[in-house]
Design a binder for these strands. Structure first.
Lengths: 238, 238
DNA sequence: CGCGGGTTTGAATGAGTTCAATCACGGTGG
DNA sequence: CCACCGTGATTGAACTCATTCAAACCCGCG
């Protein structure tokens, strides 16, 4: 719950007890191993999920085995806020690393949110952010070079993690394989590897098996044209 | 107004007078020439716009002059449904062809929609569709070849026009320059031209100065893996 | 007629892919 | 404790798709 509180809490800071209604909603906690499915394409979505820990991905598979990841979902992220009105999911969600998630019945969720304007506003903001992430993803994949894309994604993830931890750290715990980065950025695994090597050689980052350290944030942001405004963190100031 | 009625009307068919509230909302009608700005990045959005005729685009400009179009907006489309809660726009909107649009004050819009569940549901659906378009755009740009992308976009636009006209026509009036297609698909103008030539040579389409005729819809859809389900037109049956 | 925007074509270049081989590393079983 | 295995990361070489630059073309319009 912690991570959601942190995430949603930004928007209801003034009135923390608004969150209690939400915390009291009945739920089930589930764990999924990396690679396991959470929601599959064509499925009716009757639940809202909140990621407690770990990373998940939303993606679509194409006929010839290609995969495109739409976005990463981090602790504190909710889905599918949009689809819960009797729509069928048009994409898959699965665990990118080991994931713990809270599952809440959609109708109960809706009722609580509808009856609490503070909460409604918070989730509205979350939906705005989610849409902004999709837009940025289009730009990244459509008009940026491999090097820019990769750097840009790293900075985005780093910033999003900060939304939950409350501080902007230079080390990004990175629990997922490079093949996921490839499928997110529309590149081949091989090229992701080369590109990361290049980013290391350029002194932007350092990597170990657990994650990525950002060595020159400013230079890196300039290089890849990263501007965190699209994340709509206005309420925050990191 | 006609086009919006057609668009939103699908979701409130049973109860046409629900739309009257909406039609009665005070508004201004504006015309923009191709290339003119409608909303610019960083601007506060206090209005909801509805496209009456013509096409508009949402896009972002990158430092070095590159441009990525996020999506096309056709008659009957509304924006920015999401952003109207005191957010600043993180992208531009401008006219792709000559555009007539209806401008409605955000607060009045919100009040009317909130007080009318049928309308609220309709616009909720419109928002779901909009998000689905963004997701599909990511997949198109991230994991499809130039030929597939181009064909896929043509079929999507064709299908979306049908949502408003009420019938699926094989001829798509195409009022915008190829350079817009290029910026939407993350390709160069030159390559779009070559790709269209190829689609013509393959017998998928025929073009004149006004638009595109789809000659082999089925074959074309198979080739580019177009599956209209993502458009969430379930309520329709064309 | 001539200008100008948009489109088309060709040739050279380049970014990213593909295929295949190698490496690094953590886990497992003998 | 070490050999072995498998997964994921890395490297090299050949190849492909798309870009770039430049020139030609087309067509509507003043």
């Amino acid at each position: 719950m912690d991570s959601l509180i942190k995430r949603i809490g930004y928007y209801v800071r003034s009135n923390p007890e608004a969150l209690e209604d939400f915390a009291r909603l009945p739920y089930k906690t589930e764990t999924r191993q990396a690679g396991e499915t959470i929601v599959s394409e064509g499925e009716k979505v009757n639940f809202v999920f909140v990621i407690e820990s770990g990373w998940a991905i939303r993606f679509r598979l194409l006929e010839n085995g290609r995969r495109q990841i739409l976005n990463f979902m981090l602790p504190g992220d909710c889905f599918d806020l949009m689809a819960i009105t009797r729509a069928k999911s048009d994409h898959n969600v699965s665990a990118a690393s080991e994931v713990v998630l809270r599952r809440i019945k959609a109708d109960a969720f809706m009722k609580t949110v509808a009856s609490n304007p503070q909460l409604a506003t918070s989730f509205w903001w979350a939906a705005i952010q989610e849409e902004a992430l999709l837009r940025e993803q289009i730009i990244r994949v459509g008009r940026r070079s491999a090097k820019e894309r990769t750097a840009h994604l790293i900075l985005e993830l780093n910033r999003r993690v900060a939304t939950v931890t409350g501080q902007l750290d230079d080390y990004l715990a990175f629990p997922v394989a490079q093949s996921l980065m490839a499928d997110a950025l529309g590149l081949s695994v091989v090229h992701i590897s080369r590109t990361l090597t290049q980013l290391k050689a350029d002194g932007y980052i350092k990597m170990d098996s657990q994650g990525i350290e950002i060595l020159r944030r400013k230079k890196m942001a300039d290089m890849c044209d990263f501007d965190s405004r699209y994340l709509h963190l206005d309420k925050l100031d990191l």
